[in-house]
């Protein structure tokens, strides 16, 4: 378990230790963003523009505020949904800036975690507010044990309920390229979809169907994953040019405990039909994600 570094409560206010921005920081920022506006790192250019020194980029302050907030609340389980900043007054390098945060609201849901609205103020040494902003953060539910959220996954994928149909044209050029890449001799290249090509008609592999991406944000460390098994059966050859409709149904969600890790399996079945509505094939695919057991991580 990765514990949050602070208790998230509406009304909480804190101020981070002051941060002094250097010209070197802004040169790095310029390189990463390709913003080479001179008054951000050249003192003479800044003075010529009426500033007392190189000006700290507004988006740098926004990024710093996000980093400070996520570090404070434990960013392994948090992600930003939206953030908005207003730059009210220029800050110059070499001046200490204070980042002040207030949790304006917390909306909790047992299944989906919490949504935070956090207001940010950046203050100069005279306590003048130079920047204001709001960051909306989603926190995934914390896992207090090794238990994987099987019920949540089953609900997310609507176990037993068909999704789709999704329609895909089987392109001749794709089949031909696939056959060549898989080593088929030139004189045997044809217009029949190879059995192993089924993945190209899989809405999940194509990311047209994404139901359980919250698994990316579980607070249990993920240590691996990939295809566990694939099984495909065709009623008849599928030919280049055909329009195939695919319906995906998740049939099983289960776990297996290994030494030091826990494996989460999601099994789905795809049914392929042609333009007349006739079933032309089925595929059964298992995907596995491996998570580190908390007890193993503690060793």
């Amino acid at each position: 378990m990765i514990a949050p570094k602070m208790k998230v409560v509406a009304g909480s206010t804190w101020r981070e230790d002051p941060v002094t921005v250097s010209a070197a920081d802004l040169v790095r920022w310029a390189g990463a963003t390709e913003d080479f506006t001179e008054f951000h790192f050249d003192k003479e250019a800044a003075i010529a523009r009426g500033f007392q020194g190189p000006v700290v980029n507004g988006p740098w302050k926004a990024r710093a505020a996000k980093a400070a907030l996520l570090a404070r609340i434990g960013h392994q389980s948090a992600h930003v949904r939206r953030m908005t900043f207003e730059y009210r007054k220029a800050d110059v390098v070499g001046v200490a800036l204070a980042f002040e945060f207030t949790i304006a609201s917390v909306t909790e849901s047992d299944a989906d975690g919490s949504d935070l609205e956090v207001t940010v103020r950046v203050l100069d040494p005279a306590d003048v507010v130079t920047t204001v902003g709001t960051i909306y953060v989603h926190l995934e539910p914390q896992c207090d044990s090794d238990d994987l959220p099987l019920d949540r996954v089953r609900s997310a994928v609507s176990l037993g309920t068909p999704h789709g149909p999704f329609s895909y044209r089987v392109e001749h050029a794709d089949i031909e390229r696939y056959q060549r890449l898989s080593g088929r001799p030139e004189d045997r290249i044809d217009n029949i979809m190879p059995a192993a090509f089924f993945g190209s008609l899989d809405p999940v592999e194509r990311r047209d169907l994404e139901l359980d991406d919250f698994l990316l944000d579980l607070s249990i460390p993920k240590i691996g994953g990939g295809n566990a098994f694939n099984q495909v059966e065709y009623e008849r050859p599928i030919l280049a040019g055909e329009l195939i409709s695919v319906t995906t149904t998740y049939t099983e969600v289960y776990e297996k405990k290994g030494q030091g890790s826990r494996l989460l399996f999601r099994v789905r079945e795809n049914v392929f039909t042609d333009e007349s509505g006739t079933q032309v094939g089925t595929a059964r695919n298992g995907h596995v994600l491996a998570y580190q057991l908390a007890s193993a991580g503690a060793r």
Partner: peptide, 21 residues
């Protein structure tokens, strides 16, 4: 990581370059 390098190590030892999101 380049973007985060401009922040130094002020806020976190772990950078967002390791984030899946």
């Amino acid at each position: 990581a380049k973007l985060d390098s401009s922040l130094g190590s002020r806020f976190s030892q772990k950078t967002s370059s390791q984030s899946p999101r």
